[in-house]
Each structure stands twice: as C-alpha cells, then as structure tokens.
Computed example of a mutant assay.
Amino acid sequence: MTGLIPGSGTRGTLVLGAAFGQAGDGLFVTGLAWSVLEATGSARQLSLVLTVLTVVPLVAAPLAGHLIDRPGGPSWLVGSETAAAGLLLAAAAVRDPGLLFFLVLAAAVPLFASLSGPGLAVMISRLSPPGTVATAMARSQVASRTGRIAGPLLGGVLVGAGGLRLCCLANALSYLLYAAAWLRARRALRAVGPVRGDRARAGGVRHLAGDRRLRGLVAVALVANGSIAAVTVTLPLLARGPLAAGAGTYGLLLAAFQGGMLAVATTLSVRALPERWVGDPRTLGMGLTALGGCYGLLAASRSVPLAVLAVAAAGAALGLTSVVSDTRLVTEVPSAVRGRVLGLVTGLAGALRPAGTLVGGLAAGLLGAPAAAAIGGAALVTLGVAYARR
C-alpha cells in the first residue's frame, strides 16, 4: 500500500543519505581538529577553530528554516550539500594550510551543510503517509546515530593515513551522496504536491510564542538534549573518581550511551510506536523521568558494570524521548512554517550544548561528579512528572 503513495519509496534513500551526511560531519570535525593541532601545535588556535565550527550552525539553522519553507526548499538542500562538497574538494588541493585556512573551512562547510539538519525532518514528514511518521523519524535517528559513530572512527583512520586532504576527499564524497538522495527526494516531493498554507504568516519565533502546548514540547526536547552535554562532561570524572577506572572505561561509557539511543531507535524503526502513545504527554513525561532516574543510578554507581548499565539505559530513555518529541514537532507544527520552527529549535539545541557542558562542569567541580549527576537526575524526574500531568 505504501508503495502507491508518492515519495514513500524515497524515504529509505533519504535516510541512507543522512547516514552518509552525518558520517561526513563527524569525519570533518575529527580531521579538522587533528590537522589544526598538527599544523599549529596550539591549543588556543584549536579552540578558536572549534568555536567557529560550533557557532556557525547555530546562526545558520534558523536561516535554513526560512529557505526550507520556500517553494524551492528541496533544491536548496541539493545545492547546499553540493556546495559543501565543492568547498571540500577545493580544500583538498591546498598545501601547507594555516590558521586562516582552517577558520574559513570551519565557517564555510557547516554554513552549507547545516541546511540538512531541519530539512531532513521536514521532508521526511512530507513524504510519510499518516500514521508512519514516528517510524520514519526513528529510522532517520538510526541513520544519524550510525553516522555519528562511524564518522569520527573513519576520520581518525583517514587523517592518520593521508592527513586533512584525504579527510576532505572522503567528506566531499559523503556530501555528494547526500545531495543525490536529496535530488531523488525533490522529484518525489513534486509528486506529493506543494506545501499548503500561508508561508507569509508568523515565523518560527512568533509561532512558538503563540502556542503554549508547542512551547512545552520544545522545552522538553531542549532540556532532554541539553542533558547530554551536562552528563557527558561528568563521565570522565566518574570514571576516574568513584569508579577508579581509566580511559578505556570512559570510552565504554560513551559507547554505552550511544548504543542505548541506537538500540531504541532501531527498535522503533521496525516496530511502530502506537500513535496514541506519541500524542500522550505521559509518554514524554515517562521518558524524562526514566532519564533522570538513570542519571541518579549512575551517580550512585560504584562498579563499572552498574555504571555501564545506567548509561545505556539513559541512552535508551533519551532515544525514546527524541523520537517522540521529533515526531510531534513535525506533525503538530503547520507545514507552512515547519522549516522555520525546526530551524529555530535546531539552533537553540545547538546553543544549549555548550551551556550544558559549562553547567555540568561547574556543578561537578563544586559538588563532585556524583552529586552533580544526582541533582541533574532529580531535576529531570521533577520535570518529567510535571509534564506527564499536563
């Protein structure tokens, strides 16, 4: 039946393209960071380059939302990935790069590649038949998580074998594959038909300000994702402190967290979440409560197996929360302003990551890592219970 719906056969290609795109993003960051250190040997210059790399997508995401909402939105996505690939191919030809080169590259590539962040969710929602959006969003998260794991691993190998040049070539290939997926999606979207609604009405900020239920949903999504940065900064402190372990355990904890998220997304991609659960505030509330409880268990852990279990369960709870919140965002926001709203949310989520890292680090420094994790967990439990009772 779904094969008769325009665009339904394109979603798999688009999700696969997203995996290549996410892998390219991770590959780019890994290769760029290592190359800056190799070329300059300066921690300050590395910090400056990574700051530019972080700030540009925050500014670009809301602007990308406006482009996505335009009639030629899919064409913008094809062009942006192609332009990013072209920049990387040009960068691969540069010999003896300096700080200025790294800064330009760190600003230009994310500027173009950032369109695909909100664009993927918007276009998948348009290509998905009613009742299948949650499954489609879960599959896109599987692709994203897989790419985020594979990208840095591949980047480390390539930068060691051929330096930044080889990383740029591989990254350009990943973006070209993503552009090809967007090209196919553009054709399918023409069959689906144009977006209905008044594109000139309230933008992302005004639409969020005028919808109380949507504001609550966005707040939950931002807090849940911001907690990733806060807990991540405490993991090495917990590994070295209460767990009395080394770098290997720290890596295991990070892998367990990502593995938990990937496991839930994979499960929901093959076994659809009931629609009534997606729309029920108690589902998100329980997800946040479970996430907070897992952080509390992590704070109390004094053995590596228990800590790994707690972190994996936290990843699973966050995976459920992400799939549900993403699905509700793309289904409850009117299609005419969906790109602008998701672009704004993407920018806010990116801004919260360094804030979460700062808060988590300060709390761990003042109170100790276990206390910081416990307080963060208690706050999430409180928020989850309050949201479930809305």
Rank of each mutant, 00 (worst) to 15 (best):
L50F: 04
E38G: 08
S35Y: 08
R338A: 01
A179D: 04
G365I: 09
L153A: 14
V52Q: 13
L115C: 01
T30I: 14
A172T: 14
V49E: 10
W182S: 12
V337I: 06
A200L: 12
R353C: 01
G12D: 07
P334R: 04
L87G: 05
R184E: 10
G156F: 15
R338D: 02
W76V: 03
L352I: 02
N171W: 01
R276N: 07
G156A: 14
S227Q: 14
P152I: 02
L103V: 11
A108R: 11
A300K: 02
A300R: 12
S174Q: 08
M123H: 14
A351F: 08
A374T: 00
L217V: 00
G160E: 04
A39V: 05
R190I: 15
R206M: 12
A316K: 01
A19P: 12
V122T: 07
G293A: 13
L164V: 08
L288K: 03
H207N: 00
L222S: 06
A85H: 08
L291N: 09
A85N: 01
A172C: 14
G287T: 06
G292L: 09
V59C: 10
L164T: 05
T331R: 03
L87W: 02
Q258A: 11
Y295N: 09
L222T: 00
R240T: 14
L32M: 13
A191E: 15
P118Y: 08
I149R: 09
F101M: 01
V278E: 05
H66G: 06
G343I: 01
T234M: 10
L380D: 12
P194L: 09
A188L: 03
L208C: 03
V381N: 12
T2Q: 13
A121Q: 14
L342W: 07
A245I: 07
L306M: 10
A85R: 04
L176H: 06
I124C: 09
L366H: 15
T30V: 12
V195P: 04
L358F: 13
W277F: 14
S116A: 12
R338V: 02
A150H: 10
L288N: 02
W277Y: 13
L298M: 13
G21A: 14
L103T: 06
A43V: 11
L222G: 01
L58C: 05
A255R: 02
L380A: 08
Q141R: 15
V56G: 11
L309H: 04
L120T: 11
V122Y: 02
A143K: 05
G343L: 00
L297D: 03
L243A: 02
A92H: 07
L208F: 03
V56L: 14
R353D: 03
P242E: 10
V133T: 15
A355Y: 08
A229E: 10
V29H: 11
L342G: 01
A244D: 11
A244Y: 01
P71H: 01
